[in-house]
Design a protein around this nucleic acid. Structure first.
Lengths: 252, 252
DNA sequence: GGCCGCCAAACTGCATGCAATTCAGGCGCT
DNA sequence: AGCGCCTGAATTGCATGCAGTTTGGCGGCC
C-alpha cells in the first residue's frame, strides 16, 4: 500500500504529449479510423506546432502501435491484421489478470468509490454514442491498472487496451455495452471480496467475451484487407524486396 | 504455422533506428550504466547525425522505458526503482509464459536448431565478459518471442527484457550464468516435447530465480537511491510541486 | 571556512529551410 | 476507351539556427 512513484511519464508536459493524447483519444473514439492519413503538416497546423513536433508525436504513437510509419510515406492510423488483434487480446488477458491479482482484496475505500463512480458513468453514457461507451469501457481497465501503482503495468495495459480498441473499430461494427458494464461491476465486487481466483477468472472471461464478440471470424477478406494479405510477402527481410504488381489495388 | 507478418517495426530502416539499437545494446551490456547522461549533441556527433535525430531516438527509448527524459534536462539512462524492477519481472513472467505456451510442441526443426545454436553460443561465451553473457541470455528470450510470429509479443517481451537487464545492472553485481544456460536447455527440451504445463512452469521458475537472485533485498538504501526515495514525494500531481531542500544530495 | 548569488557555457525546445522522395493527375499513344 | 509515362504538387528526411532553460563554477559576503 506504500505509495510508489506515480511519476509522470516522459511525454506528459510538452506539446508532443498534447498531440499524442489528442490523437490517441481520437483513435479510440473512432473519429480517426484505421488507415486514416496523418500528414505531419496538417497535424502541426491543427495543433499550432511545427512539423518537428508533430513528427515526434507520430513517432511515439508508432512506438505504441497506434500509428504506422513507413519511410517517406504519410503516417496512417494502424490497421492491425486479424491475427495481430487476436495476439493483442491474448496479451491483454494476461496483463489484466496480473492487475486484478495484485488488486484483489487490496482496494482502499476511495479506490472502490472511484471504480463505482466510473461504472456509473459508463451506465449513464449508455444512451450516448458508441464512441464514448467504448472509451469509458477502456478507461475502466486503465483505471484498474493505475491502482496497482505500477507505472510499467499501467503503460502496457494502456497500450494494449488502445490497440484492442483499434481492432474493435476495424473488425466489429456493433458494440453492445450493457453486458460489459455488468461484468465490470462483477469484477469490482470480486476485487472487494478479495477472491483472487474468482476475479482472475472473471477478468479472463470478460476480456475473452469482448474479444470473441469482436473477432468472430478470421475474416480473411474484409474491407481493404488485400494489402494486409500482400504485406507479409512484401516486407520480409531487411532489403526492401518489393512485390511488383499492376496498380490494381487502391486504398480510398 | 502460417507465417504472419514479421513486419519491420517503425524504427528499423532509418538513422533513428540505428541509434536506438546501438544505445539499447550499450545499455544492456552495461557500457552505459543507469544514470549515465545522454546529451543530444554528443549522440548526434557520435553517430554523425543532427540533434533532431538523436532527440527522436531518445524519445523512442524513453517510450520503452530505457531512458528518462525530463524537460530541459539531459536525458539519462533509466534508473528503475527496486519496486519497478520487481514489477517488470512480474510482467515478464506472464508474457514469457504466454510465449512458451504458444510455442510448446509447435517448434519447427530449424527453429530448434537455431535455439540450440544460440544456447551453444551462450555456453561458449561463458568465459567472456559478463556483459556478453547477459546480452546473450536476454537474446535467447527474445529469440523465443520471435518464434511466436507475433510482432506485439516480440515488442513487449523485448522491452521488458531490456528493462530487466537494466535492473540487473543496478541491483545485482555478480552474474552467474551457468545455471541460466542449463535452464535454457531445459526449456528447449520441454518445448520440443510439447509439454505445455511443464514448459510454462519451467519458464516461470527460470525467470523467478533470475529475479530473486538479482533482487534479493528491498534494498531501501543502495548506491544513489536517496533520490528514488524522495521522488514519490516530489513528483505527485500535475503541478510541479517541488520539494525544497538544501542542496545536500549530489548525484555523481 | 562556508554559503549565496551571479554569469557564462552547455543544453534543450522548437521552428524553419532545403533536398529527396512519393503521389496524383494529365497527356499522348495504342 | 485503356494503358503507361511524365511532370508538378505534396510530403517526408534531415540539418541548422535561435531563444529559453539549466548547470556549474567563480567571486563576494557573512
Amino acid at each position: 500500500m506504500a505509495p510508489r512513484s506515480a511519476g509522470k511519464n516522459a511525454e506528459s508536459s510538452d506539446k508532443v504529449g498534447v498531440i499524442c493524447r489528442a490523437l490517441r483519444r481520437a483513435i479510440i473514439e473512432q473519429a480517426l479510423e484505421p488507415g486514416a492519413k496523418l500528414p505531419e503538416d496538417s497535424l502541426g497546423e491543427r495543433f499550432g506546432v511545427s512539423r518537428t513536433i508533430a513528427r515526434h508525436a507520430l513517432g511515439q504513437l508508432a512506438a505504441e502501435g497506434l500509428v504506422e510509419l513507413r519511410r517517406n510515406r504519410i503516417a496512417v492510423v494502424a490497421t492491425p491484421s486479424w491475427q495481430e488483434a487476436r495476439d493483442a487480446f491474448d496479451i491483454r488477458i494476461e496483463l489484466e489478470r496480473l492487475v486484478v491479482r495484485q488488486l484483489a482484496g487490496k482496494l482502499t475505500k476511495p479506490q472502490i468509490a472511484t471504480l463505482n463512480a466510473h461504472v456509473d458513468a459508463e451506465d449513464a453514457a449508455r444512451d450516448g454514442t458508441d464512441a464514448v461507451s467504448i472509451r469509458l469501457a477502456t478507461e475502466f481497465h486503465i483505471l484498474l491498472a493505475h491502482m496497482t501503482n505500477s507505472p510499467i503495468l499501467v503503460r502496457y495495459v494502456s497500450e494494449v487496451a488502445y490497440r484492442c480498441c483499434l481492432t474493435l473499430s476495424l473488425y466489429s461494427r456493433p458494440h453492445s455495452s450493457e453486458c460489459a458494464i455488468n461484468e465490470h461491476r462483477a469484477i469490482i465486487a470480486a476485487l472487494v471480496k478479495g477472491d483472487e481466483a474468482k476475479v482472475m477468472a472473471l477478468m479472463h472471461s470478460h476480456l475473452d467475451s469482448v474479444a470473441s464478440r469482436a473477432l468472430v471470424a478470421p475474416a480473411p477478406q474484409r474491407g481493404r484487407d488485400l494489402l494486409d494479405i500482400l504485406a507479409p510477402y512484401a516486407d520480409e527481410g531487411g532489403s526492401e524486396r518489393v512485390v511488383k504488381l499492376p496498380k490494381v489495388v487502391r486504398v480510398r
